[in-house]
Design a binder for these strands. Structure first.
Lengths: 228, 228
DNA sequence: CAAATATAATAGTATTACTATCATACTATA
DNA sequence: TATAGTATGATAGTAATACTATTATATTTG
């Protein structure tokens, strides 16, 4: 993503924080170190107390930025999807062929993030891992409908919308563009998880990427009719 | 599923419990009521204390059956996948055509469970909902590799193995049978979730089922080559 | 009937997920 | 430069969670 990102800021729903973490050094440190810690110990074991200890700050100070760790997770994952959206729009913008466009979008959405942009306090490599391991937990809750109404998932929804449109552009007769878009995003993460923890449940490995699998799936499905 | 299930017991890894809940009335009540409660309040809000209160038993008594609620969830979901496996094997056993076989298997794995078999203390309708809403949480943990080694996911893995084999029988040239099998199971659950909570992220609704979407996806993918 | 086993009752601990209060330091402006 | 406002830190406290331990009582079985 090179230098362009320097000037780009990702707009996050401001109901997700009490005080904008971008507005102070402490705020940025909260983001930076929480990404590291959630990665290391997992979301369940991560607490604001531990975070405070590690950043040499006070638990109560962290609560001035985020109501609870669930909102922090929503903040982090929203940032991630916003970053994905930016990359997708930027990279597909100039492509004329709708097939090439979709191909590129799938690549961006399903590839493993391997380089940290290093322009901000946000480590995208680790954030990608957090999304793989923790994203489902942000919506598999009893509060999901209320939080959806509050707009906490809006970036993710917009992203799937865009991907769905690209699918339709490739095949306007295809009946399940939105479901397929959801499948790409969600199963993209899942195949990465399987590769790491359940290699016997996936064909993805060092040589075969989730991107290849999903690209093959999508392009074998579109512009085809079932014939017996 | 009718009367056949009466005689069938699903074998669960006995490391998942301290004392087999099938071995006593209290154990069965723990299973029965925990299914209800996890459904109502969600896994996060569910505790052994609340369960004890509801079944008029003691928190400490429940700990004599399950070490913690995570193991209980693994027990319940293992049971579910065992039940799925039973249905799948039973229903596909006599089918000669490999296409028909796969079709049937996909139907069984991705349909919404609407009827409780009523032969046991286990309500399959509610259990299906639990699996949709909570299953990911059982493996998205830092302990997943250790627990996988202990065999806690063995039924699920066997099920995906079987489904993968059926895919290969339909198309022996297809390169991603295992990934596709994983996608069917996991995305089957996910499409049900989306239908309920994020209707704008799926094409599934009252008329279109996740089964239809996934069946279409699978059969449009198999026995096809990408051609430009 | 005694012994073994299952369950219940009670208490206690460390940790979590906060909330509240007060002190202090730093910052912006009149 | 004094002062008011804002940010952070320190400390304390609460209710709930996720257990463990102990003892009592009830039930089953040999």
């Amino acid at each position: 993503m090179d230098r362009l990102l320097q000037g780009v800021t990702i707009k996050i729903n401001d109901k997700l924080f009490v005080k904008n973490p971008e507005s102070s050094e402490l705020g940025k440190r909260i983001i930076e170190i929480s990404i590291q810690m959630i990665n290391e110990m997992g979301f369940e074991n991560f607490t604001f107390k531990k975070l405070g200890l590690k950043i040499g700050s006070n638990e109560s100070s962290i609560y001035r930025y985020f109501e609870n760790k669930h909102k922090l997770l929503l903040y982090l994952t929203s940032w991630y999807w916003g970053w994905m959206e930016y990359q997708m729009v930027f990279a597909t913008n100039s492509i004329k062929s709708s097939k090439e466009k979709l191909l590129k979008a799938i690549l961006i959405m399903t590839r493993e993030v391997k380089e940290d942009s290093a322009f901000s306090h946000i480590n995208e490599v680790l954030l990608n891992k957090i999304v793989i391991n923790e994203y489902s937990k942000s919506y598999l809750t009893k509060e999901v409908d209320a939080e959806n109404k509050e707009g906490f998932y809006i970036i993710y929804k917009r992203l799937i919308g865009r991907l769905g449109e690209m699918i339709t552009e490739v095949d306007s007769d295809y009946q399940y563009p939105t479901s397929l878009a959801s499948t790409i995003l969600e199963n993209g993460l899942h195949q990465h998880f399987l590769k790491e923890h359940f290699p016997s449940l996936t064909d993805c490995n060092d040589k075969v990427t989730p991107t290849q699998y999903l690209t093959h799936l999508v392009f074998n499905t579109l512009n085809k009719e079932i014939d017996e």
